[in-house]
Every structure is written in structure tokens, then in C-alpha cells.
Nucleic acid binder design. Sequence first.
DNA 1: ATGACCGACCATGTCGGA
Length: 272
Amino acid sequence: MVVSIATWNINSVRLRMPIVRKFLKSSEPDILCLQETKCPDEVFPHEQFEKLGYPHIALHGQKGYHGVAVVSRRPFESLSRDRFCDKEDARHIAVKFNRGAGLSESFTLHNFYIPAGGDIPDPALNPKFAHKLNFLDELVECTANRDSANGKNAILVGDLNVAPLENDVWSHRQMLKVVSHTPVEVEKFTRAQEAGRWIDVMRGFIPEPEKLYTWWSYRAADWLESNRGRRLDHVWASSSLKGAAQEMKILSKARGWERPSDHVPVIVKFDL
DNA sequence: ATGACCGACCATGTCGGA
């Protein structure tokens, strides 16, 4: 059966509920993975998601910053809320969808919010960039011996805050010293992808050299006119799910919705 | 500079985002 999975950095879930509703009603994903929910679990808008047909919810939130959530039409089993870099900063949640009710394969779903890394691309001068690099190193470690690497079915989505390929940014040359596209973080990002034997699902549908963006800065006067975007949001699938992805969509128009997030949803349909 | 921004919070600025 076809299961559609969406990922969206929502930049405050409570503020953004009007466009979350609009998205769920128009795109009808089975599962929505959110990042930057920016609220403690106690005040996450549960009831609104339930009314929209998404009663199964797993949360890893905190006050004010970061925070991830999985909301689903289908039931799942909660697996873990992993901690990275010895910080309790709500950047990961994993759940498992079991076989049955039309689903012929079980799979684990990881939802990540990787640190942005601040402005200065030097770990000696910028602790936020050091944190990002450490996080990526830990991601290599944690994925090298887990589900995907071991041939199990897994999907990893989220705001990974790295635009790894030349055409994941509007200007490769001008972005080489800009955090999100520096060679040092791209190298670690790629190593994590390889360690987990992950497939870059989005680029399977739209290979280079076509430009792919999921984020446009709030600072541009006209995001569409300047179109200086980056692909910061990703969907990875385990090698065991090679060929399972049927369709991929970047909902760019959501950047133009009222009171938008600076990220747009990415939706992938898997035949599972 | 590409950038004329945006959100949370015991708030009238500061921090984080990327």
C-alpha cells in the first residue's frame, strides 16, 4: 500500500496551525514529521490534530526552541528520543510502523532537527558550528550500526540543515563559506549518509544539475523573485527500500502562504 | 552581504534561526 510521508520545519507549530490545517487538508499525507515545534509537549495542539484525522502523535519538545513531532493517521510504536552531544535539546524522535492493516512491510522512521550552526564557519570561533560538526560526527556513529545500515527498513527525514550538493544552493561558489554548504560539514553529512547506507530519495527523483530548494530566507524582499534557496530538508531511505519511493513533491507554494514558515513541506509516497 | 526578517520569552531587548 502507498504511505505518504511529509517533513516540514514549521517554525512554531502553535503559531502555524492555520497553514498546517491547510496543508493536511490539501495534501493529505499519512504521516507528518515536524521540526522546530517550539513548545513543550504539554501544550502541543493535540486536539486540533486529532480533529484533522491525525490521532497518533509522538513528541520530543521543549520550551521555546527546537522540538520535533510525528503526527500520523496510522498507529505506530514509539521507539526513542535520542540525545546528541550530551544535550537535552529535543532534536530527534524515532517511531516504528508495524506490518498489518495493509502495510506489508514494517519500518522505522527517524525525524531529525540538526543544529543550524550559527554564522561563522569556524568551530574554534563559533561554538554553534562546533556543536553542529559534533552532532554530525555522532550521527555517523549512531547510524553506522543501526536499522538502515543493517539492512532493515528505515526512513530518515528532517531539517538536516546541510545543503550537500552544488545545486542544493543558489550559488555553489558564493556559498562555500556560508554555514550549511561548507566543505567540512558536507563531508560529515555525506559520511553519515554512507555509514547508514541511506538513499537520497529527493535526488532520486530530481538529479543534479537541477536546482532543488526547500528553504528560502525571510530576509529577501521577495523570496520567489530572488529565488536564493537551499535544500536543507531531506528524505533518506534505507537501501532495503530501494525502489519503494513512488513520488516526491516539494510544496514550494507553501512559502507564499499567509504567515509562512521559511521551510516548505516535502512529501514522498512509498509503496510499502 | 543574498537579506528591506521572524519567533519565543517573566520582553520593551536578547537569543536563535540559516
